[in-house]
Amino acid sequence: MSAAIEVRGLSKRFGAVVALEDVALRVEFGRVVGFLGPNGAGKSTLMRALLGLVRPDNGAAHIAGLPYAHLTAPAKRVGAVLDIASAHPRMTARAHLRTYAALGGMARSRVDTVLSLVEAQSYADRRIGTFSTGMRQRLALATAMLGDPDILVLDEPSNGLDPSGIAWLRTFLHSFADAGGAVLLSSHVLHEIEHTIDDVILIDHGRTVWTGPLEQLVTKDAPLEEAFLRLTQKGPLS
């Protein structure tokens, strides 16, 4: 069986700036994987390359064994949250989801299903322009789940969530992985993500510097933030 996500030898340059250099990583089904690194380390570039939004100079990025562009029904294979600002502020959450469902050839009934999944029913008919950041995060996740994918790629999914929302997200992601799904997520809040992830992929200056199970990286007396500082020789993420 193919890995959920596999990246081999990925390199990308923007002019004189090296964003990624020979990056390799692997995400297995049934795991929640934290994708960590300092600001500017290359996390967003890699996520965009994985989803076909950036063309790498070298290497390969595969989802379930195929490049994103070769997936026959990409929304039904992978759900992504990269930008929570893309929803039109004058639309309601329900109308936004119905539009995306129609564009993706998904059943309209999925709209109510995903609203329930992210517990957004109470504001489904409000205009998105009135939403808090946490509400927008839930709507973005609902949009990613429309195709009932088995792989999620999430950039800072806990941003704007209150403590109860963070606890809810942690339970949601664990349940998703326990059902056989795979999650690749980035975060700058290390003390939160440490309680969410199974594995860690750490990059710095566009290169992979550590990958493996969380328990091999941290101990009771040396939490994730200390390991991050040791491996990157940087200040805390911000």
Rank of each mutant, 00 (worst) to 15 (best):
M1T: 11
A3G: 04
L10Y: 08
L10A: 08
S11P: 05
S11I: 10
K12A: 01
G15I: 06
A16F: 09
A16S: 15
V17H: 13
V18P: 10
A19S: 08
A19W: 12
L20Q: 06
D22E: 15
D22I: 12
V23C: 09
A24G: 15
V27R: 10
F29V: 03
F29I: 01
F29P: 15
G30P: 14
R31Y: 00
G34P: 15
G37L: 07
G37Q: 02
N39R: 02
G40I: 02
A41N: 12
L46S: 02
R48A: 08
A49E: 10
L50W: 02
L50C: 06
L50P: 04
V54D: 07
G59H: 04
G59S: 05
H62P: 00
H62W: 13
A64Y: 00
L66R: 14
T72P: 00
A73P: 01
A73Y: 00
K76R: 15
R77T: 03
G79S: 02
G79A: 01
V81H: 11
V81G: 09
V81E: 04
V81K: 07
V81A: 07
L82P: 06
A87G: 04
P89Y: 08
R90H: 14
R90V: 10
M91I: 05
T92R: 06
T92G: 10
A95C: 05
G104P: 04
R108G: 12
S109R: 15
S109G: 14
R110K: 03
R110E: 13
E119P: 09
A120F: 10
S122I: 05
Y123H: 15
R127V: 09
T130E: 14
F131S: 04
S132Q: 05
T133M: 14
R138A: 12
A142N: 06
T143N: 15
A144K: 07
P149V: 01
I151S: 02
I151H: 02
L152F: 07
L154A: 03
E156F: 09
S158L: 12
S158H: 13
N159G: 02
N159C: 04
W168S: 00
L169R: 07
R170G: 02
F172C: 08
G181R: 04
V183Y: 03
H188M: 11
V189T: 12
H191E: 09
T196G: 01
I197M: 07
D198T: 07
D198F: 10
V200W: 09
V200S: 01
D204F: 08
G206I: 10
V209M: 08
V209A: 04
K220Y: 00
K220D: 00
A222N: 07
A222H: 14
P223D: 00
L224C: 06
A227K: 07
F228E: 05
F228S: 02
L229G: 11
L229T: 10
R230L: 10
Q233G: 10
P236H: 01
P236R: 04
P236C: 01
L237M: 14
L237N: 05
S238G: 01
S238T: 04
